[in-house]
């Protein structure tokens, strides 16, 4: 089975996010005054071959823990979907 993992990596709450602050300020400059906060993160799409869904989930989690996120500063979430031919 083929799966697509959609991984989102964000900074943990309380970790300073200068990118987010800069983007928020730019939005204010464009007169989007209602914007209170922007958080910047990373989006990664991973296509993988796996026996079944739970195996694919396990592998995606391992990838997130070992490389895709840095547990000191970041947390992650993901969605998994099966790719049908």
């Amino acid at each position: 089975m083929k799966y697509r993992g959609k991984v989102i990596v964000t900074l943990k709450p309380g970790v300073f996010d200068p990118q987010g602050v800069t983007i928020r300020n730019a939005l204010h400059t464009l007169s989007f005054r209602e914007v209170e906060e922007v958080k910047a993160g990373k989006y990664l799409e991973i296509i993988l071959e796996s026996e079944n869904r739970s195996q694919a989930e396990k592998r995606i989690q391992e990838m997130c823990d070992q490389l895709l996120s840095n547990p000191v500063i970041e947390s992650y979430s993901y969605q998994l979907e099966e790719i049908k031919n």
Partner: peptide
């Protein structure tokens, strides 16, 4: 070294961006 876990901590972008 921090990414490899040889030293503790992590690095964020500079405060001023």
């Amino acid at each position: 070294l921090t990414e490899a876990g040889i030293l503790p901590g992590a690095f964020l972008p500079n405060r001023g961006g």
